[in-house]
Design a protein around this nucleic acid. Sequence first.
DNA 1: CCTTAACATCTTTTT
DNA 2: GATGTTAAGG
Length: 684
Amino acid sequence: MSSPPPSLNPAQLEAVHYLQGPCLVLAGAGSGKTRVITHKIARLLQAGYQPGQIAAITFTNKAAEEMRERAKALVGPRAAKHLVISTFHSLGVKLLRADGQRLGLKEKFSILDSDDVLSILRDAGSTTDAALARRWQWTISLWKNQGLSSDQAEAAVQNDDERVAARVMRLYEERLLAYQAVDFDDLIGLPLKLLQRDDEARAKWQDTLRYVLVDEYQDTNAVQYELLKALVGERAMFTAVGDDDQSIYGWRGATIENLKRLPQEYPQLKVIPLEQNYRSTGSILRAANNVIAANPKIFEKKLWSEYGDGDPVRVVECDNEEHEAERAVARIQSIRAGATTQAPAEWSDFAILYRANHQARMLEQALRKAQIPYKVSGGQSFFDRAEIKDLCGWLRLLVNNDDDPAFLRAVTTPKRGIGHQTLGHLGEFSAKWKVSLFEALFADSLSTAVNARAIGSLHEFGRYVNDLEYRFRHTVGSEDAKPVLMEWLKEIGYEQHLYDGEDNEKIAANRWQNVLDFIDWVARRCGGQLETEGGVTEETERKSILDVAQSISVILSLAERGGDPNVVTLSTLHASKGLEWPHVVLAGVNEGLLPFKSEDEEMTAQRLEEERRLMYVGITRARTTLAVSTLKRRKKGREFVQGIPSRFIGEMKLDEKTMKEDPREKLKALRAEFAKRAAQAKAA
DNA sequence: CCTTAACATCTTTTT
DNA sequence: GATGTTAAGG
């Protein structure tokens, strides 16, 4: 954060102190919206609200965590502990855990992650085509985010693809019901259903959560909007904080309509714009304002700053992607060494932002070549791979037999003759008797729900899990752990499973290698005599495989946090929202890329406007310097085609002199200078 | 006709 | 880097 002033400005004060009714805070980029929310929480406490009566809702866990930290600093740990600060989804979980039974949901319903969903869809639609299943998942999710049931979706289908998707959705919903499982979208939709249909529950929750604050309101979808409405009820005590100019998730179901509807549905709505920016220089803000001015406005808002103009925004024309990456690297090196008016910078002061993930490749290459440390944000980790999640599912089941999603994953991978029929019956049975799927396995009365043959397979599976658990509990130290783990893989036939599920042998082999790496990783953590890099052996505490399995989730969440190392950030524009850096480079700002144009989809005005907001988000990430680079030639097919600078560059209305100013010679000299310095450093 | 290897083509992503 | 597509060859 750039140093915010010690006290709130008049607009922020007004937003914080307005408690009389519904309130919409239009928080421009860098205008201190988190500050407003946390101060408003403090104000509410002061006004007599109990901590547990105040809910602050965010979109990501990260945002929720940060907000809780900031609130804690303001109101103290005791009050902060009881504040309801969570994502829409975890609030949904809270409601469903408490009152889901009123919808006929069992108490310990399972929450499926998107991999679980994908495999159910593949099974329900009987296809091995992962891409097709993913398209279904996509459409079904969009439907659900619009509040459509499978019936309604079926009635509204436009084409054959959608017709099939709707049919799969019906099967999918039946399957979820039988398993007593919900997906992420249900975590919003079902609580809404609860509040709409159950007067008692509605009264209870409206009485519990007496004031609701929503962060990033422009990202809400239709169902989230309805949930908010149901939650605040007639009293309508809420504050929505958002910025229509930063709405970039339309493709995910978020709708700006929610912003337009707010003043219509709540005529008494108090609208407070926050226009003073505490982040960026005048030049950067001017460029941002100019770009967004081309969009139609819902609410008038123009950012301003007390900071001086600072360095002009640069436009860097590059020959091709490779050249662009070099230029970005050269720029970073020269700024870091203090080649601008700014003070020398850390690596972590830099970010290179781009429209699409694949653009990161060249940039990574160039950074590696220049030996600059970097991280690619949003790159999925080792543990997100399907094969690793499969095995983690098994381990989770061993650690906690009642983990139903883990049960479902383990019992179906690899396939062991227990199909969805059997699992459906088992799910119904477990819901009826309020036990976990695993507990249901050994219930005497299970024979009333499942046929004898299936019971045989189920018992066999249950016994195997118990047996494995026993072995893993008593295997200690990495030397012993590895063979036991390998034996496990052999017993469940996992290698075969990988090769069966994939036509391409290379890919399967690659996955198997990942599995072996994972086994090594787990075994190493069992401790004992370990060889470290220098060939030195080291004695560490010995743990059982089960102990390690138990700590995996902790290790993972710690790894996520893992401090903030001093590295350059590469990120998509989408993933950059909410973050800021002193020095930002926007890469590949060309027609076709940003605004993105797809071959088979028409560029509507709406689409273009969202692309423009994306550009706006990118510009406003920068605090002191901003460079926008374009490609003169773009690779398309085997030939280069001419690259056209994005229309957004024109819209920034930069000075003529800024556009041209980028002496190639100077950069060359700088690069030579750095090569020299590097050589010297190496020699010394 | 089927297999393989070179080749081109990449949206955006959280829960 | 992964995934579908096309052209060549068996």
